[in-house]
Design a binder for these strands. Structure first.
Length: 444
RNA sequence: GGCCCCAUCGUCUAACGGUUAGGACAUCGCCUUUUCAAGGCGGUAAUCGGAGUUCGAUUCUCCGUGGGGUCACCA
């Protein structure tokens, strides 16, 4: 009861079937329901649709519930359809008694099929309902024939269970995927048969693969835990999912969950399907990593790197260089015993050219020697990037910034891809910087 | 195939009859401490087609085309 709903007129639900891990699409549907409930002070209900005993498992249910919790969506009420069979039976009996349904004897066409099932007596009528996102949608239910609503009195099927539960739970708005549009007329038919009030419908667009098809397992990572495992933050996942088919009034893109609740407006949900773009997810992730507190980011870096990095300068370098947490391992590969980059033994066979660049060996030695003597004049306490820059800038400008700073950077880090030399020197400190430069110059 | 839904840059989208069609991601170029990253500046890039309605259509209507969803004793 974390959300403390105050508006009994708004009750929404997410109704996942535990036949797989928490899917991206399910998470997004849950998010829109959650945002709608929160925005309107309504209740957010989780209902596990596990009427299919063969395919439903507790493991999947746990994955779904854990995933939602992980993303920060707290629910107000929880139900499991497998625990409500007697309720469905009551409705089934009543429907049969009232002539809205009947037991049908038929041949089992497939393995495991029943000889007797319960079918809905289709009144063959035209149905129109108003979708909050798409407007009026009409169907002729004649096409549906007498569809099966239960295998037996104890084994209800999807359509029956959904309608009975939405009714019993006083669901006010059914916000679900577009793939349910064609299920709606069947469900409205059952609602009329049991005298249920018709909820308001909002069918949200699907999340599509690059091939513009409904996202499926074949399209790579489709479950939330996979993205969490790769090191995407919950904030980024939420933010990204919200923007797949929804957009606020202004141009703000980076949102926290609370900000999303404030800005959410169901009428601004898109009609067309949206392609899942991992690049944009990455961008959202970077943005949310930028917002992390230093304490939190430090904790995460050390958890992933298995190191104990505390130097804020190094942490900043890492923060600017990663897209997802699993990048931390790669970025901190050279971070170690010196508290910064490990100083590799420079290979004399190949690196010289890399160090000299456009200068000659003699010039490079001259430049680095000058830098060394300049550094020796500085006190330990003056070894700050800003001071170092001031001390060397004019000289570097005179001789050529690249010609001077490139070998310095290379010798300090031992890497051709490295942070700017002044920051490197500050991180290393005076002693280590000099050791590396002097050691390096002897090998040029 | 029947039924249903949808249609603005490569992608996510803004516009609710009048805009040089805006923003973001990606991409390209320049700058920034000649690298990587971050940052700054700038560029390329879209209204599916055809009829209407209207003084005026991205926007409203119809047709076409294209894409998608759905047609279980799954959900």
């Amino acid at each position: 009861m974390k959300n403390n709903p105050t508006n009994p007129a708004v009750r929404v639900r997410i109704a996942p079937s535990p036949t797989g891990n928490l899917h991206i699409g399910t998470a997004r549907t849950a998010l829109f329901n959650y945002l709608f409930a929160q925005k309107n002070g309504g209740a957010f209900i989780v209902r596990i649709e596990d009427t299919d005993k063969e395919r439903s498992t507790l493991e999947y249910e746990k994955n779904i519930l854990d995933g939602m919790k992980q993303l920060g969506m707290e629910y107000d009420e929880f139900y499991r359809q497998s625990e409500r069979t007697s309720l469905y039976k009551t409705y089934l009996l009543k429907m049969i008694e009232d002539g809205f349904a009947y037991e049908s004897q038929e041949e089992a066409r497939e393995e495991g099929q029943r000889a007797s099932v319960i079918r809905f007596k289709n009144p063959n009528t035209k149905i129109t309902f108003t979708d909050m996102i798409r407007g009026d949608i009409s169907f002729d239910t004649t096409d549906l024939s007498d569809f099966v609503i239960a295998k037996s009195l104890e084994e209800p099927l999807y359509h029956l269970a959904v309608v009975v539960d939405d009714h019993e739970m006083n669901i006010s708005h059914v916000i679900r995927g577009e793939d349910h549009i064609s299920n709606t007329p069947r469900q409205i038919l059952i609602q009329r048969a049991i005298g249920a009030i018709q909820p308001l419908y909002a069918h949200i667009p699907l999340i599509l693969s690059k091939e513009r098809k409904k996202l499926s397992k074949r399209d790579g990572a489709t479950s939330i835990d996979q993205y969490v495992g790769l090191g995407y933050t919950k904030e980024a996942i939420i933010n990204f999912l919200a923007f797949l088919g929804w957009h606020p009034e202004d141009d703000q893109e980076v949102f926290t969950l609370d900000e999303l609740i404030q800005a959410f407006d169901i009428s601004r949900i898109q009609k067309g399907g949206a392609i899942f773009d991992i690049e944009k997810l990455g961008w959202f992730n970077k943005e949310h990593i930028k917002k992390l507190s230093d304490e939190e980011f430090t904790r995460i870096v050390n958890e992933y790197s298995k190191l104990e990095i505390e130097n804020p300068l190094i942490l900043t370098l890492i923060r600017e260089r990663i897209t997802i947490y699993s990048d931390i391992t790669e970025v901190t590969k050279h971070t170690g015993e010196f508290g910064y980059l490990i100083y590799p033994t420079i290979d004399l066979e190949t690196p010289s050219k890399a160090i000299w660049k456009d200068s000659t060996r003699e010039q490079t030695i001259e430049y680095v020697s000058h830098v060394i003597s300049a550094l020796k004049h500085l006190e330990d306490s003056d070894f700050k990037a800003q001071n170092l820059k001031e001390a060397l800038w004019d000289y570097a400008t005179e001789k050529g910034r690249g010609a001077v700073l490139w070998p310095v950077r290379y010798l300090l880090s031992g890497l051709d891809r490295s942070p700017d030399p002044f920051v490197s020197m500050e991180i290393l400190g005076k002693d280590k910087s000099l050791v590396r430069l002097e050691d390096g110059i002897s090998k040029i």
